[in-house]
Computed example of a mutant assay.
Amino acid sequence: MEWNLLVMMLCALTTCAGALPVFFIQGISHRRMDSILAYTAGIMVAASTYGLIPASLKLTNLFVLCFGVLAGALLLNLLEYFIPHVDIEHNRTGVLVPSQSMMMVAAMTLHNIPEGLSVGASLASEVENLGLVVALSMGLQNAPEGFLVALFLVHQNVHRGAAVLLAGITGVIEFIASLIGFSLVNVALFLVPYGLAFAAGAMLFIVYKELIPETHGHGYERWATFSFLLGLLSMIGLVEWFR
């Protein structure tokens, strides 16, 4: 149990660790912003298609996978109607985000719940290496997610310390969900493939709806394209390295 608890804790803490670099970012150009967002998008796409979706298929069938992916995307789509939408506005002095926009934070928090349940239940299961593969996939994509949440909050004029704290809270929620999934493994294990697919769908929705469009339109599309590929390959490389 101690080892599993440590894995769950480290997996959740990567969100907070990923948010820490915002303390050192004072000003950011359009080119750098587009590159960072594209790199993050690449990591999230790789985590979804190379980690979460194969893990879900390993446990279930194509129907469950499709249901989970579409459910994750549809729920985030509905979320836009209830939470003010994040639209990044640009001017010559930098990047501004409307202060009322919290869709990204809510979206990350929402999809961290099935992620946590999946990590906990996978670790408690007897499926060989499933727990480590799921935890690794979640942990590696939590870092850029934490950075993304904190960066958006900073550009909403939120204090940097508060931005990191809020990003870290999304990780705490994932840790709590992991404990629940571990404790209720007999019930939660049935939900693991749905949770993995849901998390993949939620991430792919964010990437295609928010991140990729934001990286185009400022004249740095080529930079963003290669940054996306680097992020994609980085995530695949890390997963292969730790397998």
Rank of each mutant, 00 (worst) to 15 (best):
I25M: 08
P21M: 00
S101P: 05
F175D: 01
G146Q: 05
V164N: 00
F82W: 08
C66M: 11
E174Y: 04
E174W: 03
V172G: 13
I28V: 11
V105D: 03
L59S: 06
N4D: 15
I176W: 11
L166M: 12
L20I: 14
P54S: 07
V45L: 08
V207G: 06
L179Q: 04
L117W: 00
G146Y: 04
T15S: 10
G51M: 05
F190S: 09
G237D: 01
R32P: 02
M138L: 15
V95F: 15
L211P: 05
G131T: 01
Y39I: 13
L191N: 00
S122M: 06
L229T: 04
E221S: 09
L165C: 03
H111Q: 10
L211E: 04
L151H: 03
E126H: 07
L179R: 03
A150N: 07
L117S: 02
V149C: 14
P213W: 01
L76N: 09
W3S: 13
L233R: 01
V97I: 15
E80S: 12
A41I: 10
M103F: 14
W223C: 10
P114R: 04
L62Y: 05
S178D: 06
I173T: 11
A202P: 13
A162L: 07
A41M: 05
A41Q: 06
V239L: 15
R32V: 14
V119C: 05
W223G: 04
F242K: 03
F175V: 07
A224S: 15
V7P: 11
L20N: 05
V164E: 01
A38M: 03
E214S: 00
V7L: 10
L62P: 00
E240N: 13
P114C: 08
R222Q: 14
M44N: 04
S178R: 09
L179V: 13
L238Y: 11
V158F: 12
V64K: 03
H30S: 11
T60K: 01
W241T: 06
M102L: 14
R31I: 02
P114G: 07
S125K: 01
Y50V: 07
L233W: 08
A19T: 08
F242I: 10
P144G: 11
I180T: 11
L6W: 11
M108W: 15
N4Q: 13
W3Y: 11
G168Y: 07
G131F: 02
A135Y: 09
V86F: 04
K58D: 10
F24I: 02
T40D: 13
N61W: 00
V64M: 13
I83M: 05
